[in-house]
């Protein structure tokens, strides 16, 4: 019941601290919206040459902000060269062939996403493995894809960032205000303190994850072909990892400012390893040690590739493992303040 008391107290504190609560719940939405509009503005008028495709598909493309232009194969090649269209599409016996200009990866990816979404709307027959869309890069190539999974990466990162900061600082304050010492003068066990924190902030991050996921998928209408529940699961795991890591590192900081100092050292570098950049094999191995790598990997699989639980099971296990590891490390580190 001591854990319950801890959880209630943390929630009570947050309820009385409207600013922090707003930071957890609203700041990620604000940033996501901003970045969405900045990225979106550069990809407003994409034209795609339609060599041969059913009307339903063309209409779906149009709904996804693509301007369809009916043309012949040779006209398409010409327009691709002149950059009046970004891609051309033809459908032959149910299979879609795309010629795309990969010179601007933001645009080409937006176009590909839209075309994939349009295909999705055509019914389950299109999902067959042998009808997989064939993409041919006329210019550039797919590994230029700089912002391939930008949106999904962003969700993971923002949740991670804010949860890390807020949980870390509030645990730190517990120490600097002396309430940790007071707590340690009671029969509470160290693991009960850590668990109380994880559950208390965990409750808030459930709400946070829910809001962010729904916002991104339904309001911003980001490319999302997988299951909403899986996105929610990964967002939550991202928050849990950040939460436990934040609490852990706060034991090494002696002021709020020192906690902030962890951000450029611990949080920001993780972004470089989450698929934003194409890394040499050596550097990709470094990424395997970063929680956000697994978050971004799983989110990309669900949202862009439509993966199911089996595809992300490994990421889930790693994130759960990291959370457990950080919690145990925390309990042990608290020995610094009381051995028993």
């Amino acid at each position: 019941m001591r854990i319950k008391a801890m959880v209630l107290r943390i929630l009570n504190q947050l309820r009385n601290d409207k600013r922090t609560l707003a930071l957890i719940l609203c700041a990620p939405l604000l940033l996501l919206t901003l970045i969405y509009f900045i990225l979106d503005s550069s990809t407003t008028d994409l034209s795609v040459g339609i060599i041969n495709a059913p009307q339903q598909y063309v209409e779906r493309l149009y709904e996804n902000n693509i301007v369809p232009i009916r043309c012949s194969e040779s006209e398409a090649a010409q327009m691709l060269k002149e950059e009046t269209i970004i891609a051309s599409v033809k459908m032959i016996s149910g299979k879609i062939y795309i010629d795309i200009d990969g010179g601007n990866s933001t645009k080409s990816n937006a176009a590909l996403s839209a075309m994939e979404a349009a295909k999705k709307g055509m019914g389950p027959a299109m999902e067959r493995k042998d009808l997989k869309t064939e993409v041919n890069y006329v210019y550039g190539s797919d590994d230029l894809a700089l912002f391939d999974n930008f949106g999904s990466l962003l969700i993971g990162f923002l949740v991670f960032f804010f949860t890390f900061l807020i949980s870390g600082i509030s645990f730190l304050q517990e120490r600097t205000t002396g309430t940790l010492e007071k707590l340690l003068s009671t029969p509470i066990k160290r693991w009960e303190i850590v668990t109380g924190y994880v559950l208390g902030f965990g409750a808030v991050t459930v709400i946070q994850s829910l809001i962010i996921t729904i916002f991104v998928v339904y309001v911003l209408d980001i490319m999302m072909i997988g299951s909403l529940w899986l996105v929610l699961l990964i967002t939550l795991l991202s928050a849990m990892t950040a939460l436990t890591l934040g609490i852990l590192l706060s034991t090494l900081a002696s002021s709020e400012f020192q906690m902030i100092q962890f951000i450029p050292i611990v949080v920001v570098p993780q972004v470089f390893f989450t698929g934003l950049f194409d890394l040499s094999p050596g550097w990709s191995i470094v990424g395997r040690f970063m929680p956000l790598y697994y978050v971004a990997d799983a989110l990309e699989k669900i949202m862009i590739r439509g993966g199911g639980f089996r595809d992300i099971a490994f990421d889930v296990i790693v994130l759960l493992g990291l959370t457990a590891f950080f919690m145990i490390a925390n309990t042990l580190l608290l020995r610094r303040y009381r051995r028993i």
């Binding site: 019941m1 209630l8 504190q13 309430t179 010492e181 009671t186």
Partner: peptide
């Protein structure tokens, strides 16, 4: 044991009642 530290260890954001209730529940 009841311990009162030299510096006040209180949750500033919370009313006194919540502080007391919290520690009461911690003490079971």
């Amino acid at each position: 044991i009841g311990y009162m530290a030299q510096s006040d260890a209180l949750y500033m954001m919370l009313p006194a009642a919540d502080n007391l209730e919290f520690f009461a529940s911690i003490y079971g």
